[in-house]
Amino acid sequence: MLLISCPNCGSRDETEFHYGGQAHVAYPENPNELTDREWAEYLFYRDNTKGAFAERWLHSTGCRQWFNMLRDTVTYEIQAIYPMGSPRPDAAGKVTADTGTASTAADSTTTGSASPDISGTSSSPTSISSTTAPEGATP
């Protein structure tokens, strides 16, 4: 069982979350101009990375918010958690050492004083530097 640190709620069991597939798959600028093959590739073709993989998650039984996660598909180590819409943190470890809750939204509470500290563990982006993650296809 993964222990996932939701940017709003803190660490919760994996069963509270839903997986949303690969992150940073941009909607085509002009879908009408795509060939059938290009459209099919946009819809169905995803990276099958061995190593650090950026993916979307939804805290479905908690705050019901989406967020992105950088996870190692081999070790399952959660390397970073960052808000939707923000660029993928450099896998070499340029993530801010901000307890993994890199939320910038005004009302998206990070683990501040108002938030109960229910975290047994929290993902530590600081450990990224120690991991020479094999980098697959970087979008």
Binding site: N8, G10, G62, T109, A114, S115
Partner: peptide
């Protein structure tokens, strides 16, 4: 934020999301 409850008297407001 997550976990907090506010309100007055008999009326309480629970935080479900941002």
């Amino acid at each position: 934020g997550c976990g907090s409850v506010s309100g007055t008297g008999d009326t309480s407001v629970l935080w479900l999301g941002p």
